[in-house]
Nucleic acid binder design. Sequence first.
DNA 1: CGCACTCCCTTAACCGGTTCAGTGATGAGT
DNA 2: ACTCATCACTGAACCGGTTAAGGGAGTGCG
Lengths: 345, 345
Amino acid sequence: MTAAPTPRVTIKDVAARAGVSKGAVSLAFNHKPGLSESTRDRIFRAARELGWAPNLTARTLAGSRVDVVGLAVCRPARVLGLEPWYMEFVSGVESVLAEHSCSLLLRLVRNLDEEVGVQASWWRGRQIGGSILVDFRADDPRVGLVERLGLPVVAVGHPSLTGGLTSVWTDDATAVTEAVRYLAALGHRRIARVGGAAALGHTAIRTAAFDEAAGALALAGAWQVATDFSGDAGARATRSLLTAAPPDRPTAIVYDNDIMAVAGLSVAAEMGLRVPEDVSLLAWDDSQLCRLTHPTLSAMSHDVHGFGAEVARTLFGVITGDEAAGSHPVPTPVLTPRGSTAPPR
Amino acid sequence: MTAAPTPRVTIKDVAARAGVSKGAVSLAFNHKPGLSESTRDRIFRAARELGWAPNLTARTLAGSRVDVVGLAVCRPARVLGLEPWYMEFVSGVESVLAEHSCSLLLRLVRNLDEEVGVQASWWRGRQIGGSILVDFRADDPRVGLVERLGLPVVAVGHPSLTGGLTSVWTDDATAVTEAVRYLAALGHRRIARVGGAAALGHTAIRTAAFDEAAGALALAGAWQVATDFSGDAGARATRSLLTAAPPDRPTAIVYDNDIMAVAGLSVAAEMGLRVPEDVSLLAWDDSQLCRLTHPTLSAMSHDVHGFGAEVARTLFGVITGDEAAGSHPVPTPVLTPRGSTAPPR
DNA sequence: CGCACTCCCTTAACCGGTTCAGTGATGAGT
DNA sequence: ACTCATCACTGAACCGGTTAAGGGAGTGCG
């Protein structure tokens, strides 16, 4: 992959035109002291006339900042393609990065090992100034990797999963408990949960919290199923849950994302069950999608865009060193009741 | 944004350990001739022992390849957050980039001017080796920009919009015509289209094709509405179309993406209209979403993932110079009938 | 008048690679 | 024995910035 030849304007050209040295131009463009106002003006004028902007590659090499942050996402492309959560998260991250003229280096990887390799080579190759780590699992190898490399990161996940890394997280356990309590308060005694990928740490946390809540409330029935977050898996899980005869059938189902909830809605319709009369459905990661269905989906909603923004802000703090390692909880998802939840008949 | 200090292994260390010069290491790692097998082995062994990988920044600066390609997406973040098309497209692009150990530099921009600035600074700053340009509009300023810069790009859009740039495109006009003919063949005489953003070139192409098809078939009624691709806009448009009394009401609606079609489905339900008995709906950009609704959505389907992959492959061709400028049509979307289309009552 | 102190700006080394001219050793050809 | 290639490798310049050290001019002060 070789670049096409193009005559490029360099700092030397600007310096020559402004009648100063390269160093002076550098000082001006980094807003460092030691230049008179008039020289500064002349330099900026010359740069503007030549259409010059500092070469970031050279700047990086010379050892100052790196204005790229990395994000490697480890999930099959097909699933990712549909998950609104990711795009909202990315757009939140982007919104903050853009303010700093910083870009996002995105890479889809097939597994954790590949991610470990990508992060290491990005950092060693000075491609990134820091990274965002998502989808933690128990004993995640990235914790050790990051420490070995000295790579500045923000981990998205519960502190119990992210080791000593600076983390930003939502309190999934509390949210799950709230969801179950809400359904129980409506009168549901048989509640199911269609969870995400079993390997992920936050799925395990939700699973445990669900069990505990179900026990505390002494529910008559509590089921949990693991999926891969895809709509198809959500549909399959729902179908199998609703197949049982009424006394053994859940009257309410909680989903781990919104796409599976949409799928569940359609399965209920296909099976001739009315929502919410015959079965209540509760989505997670409230995206626009939840308001576009009929009935609209009640959801545990959650400002994913703002979450992404907070992650990016924290990462800047880590990179500049202003941020002491620690954990940043963001507001717990709150229940937004809509048309898909009601007392059981 | 300053990087944390980390002792890094450089080419010099590897050279010293292997007892050769920097140049020799460089030759070895670029698989260039001029080294004996034994020296080559010694170099690779030394590199492995030290955990060294070439610094991409330095490599880039020294004037060889750049293994990053750019993508600036120009749309309000909220909308992007929801469009499955983009994530599928990105994942298709990624799948090919990954084979070449190449990453995607992603940036959300608010308008075309900003995109022009971003592309220019990426290229001038040698941040990217090439770029993918999407969402063309009439007289798009990017055509001229790219030629001025000499930036290798692939334009996603009809050749009439992308000037002399190498382009990859789907035949929207034919697809729209096919959609209208299909609905007409079912017996529909009053057909509406809920289009995308009016400023976009492909929207204009679809709009013109719809008009022409409607004329050719002498439909009794043909309406078109422009939106911003969001679910809310799709819902509003549908509501206003279906508000008219039966003789003036469309019996079939075509949408420009799938998220608006989902919204349309829910509006029909909300208004007490049955789909497809009272009104047929036809989606575009067939994502998994179309199979998750009830009824399932008929759609003009289209391998978006493969489309992204083709775009990436073409871009590699352009960057290496193997690719003569030209236009690459990919297969026209084909109609996939499902549960949301039927003859009118 | 001489000295110290600022203020502005220049110089040169450096970041970590690539590349190319050049060097010495070896072998073939005459 | 001498030239001429070929091969394997080295050395130094270079990519386009940053940065620390240094230098010259102008001012304040004893």
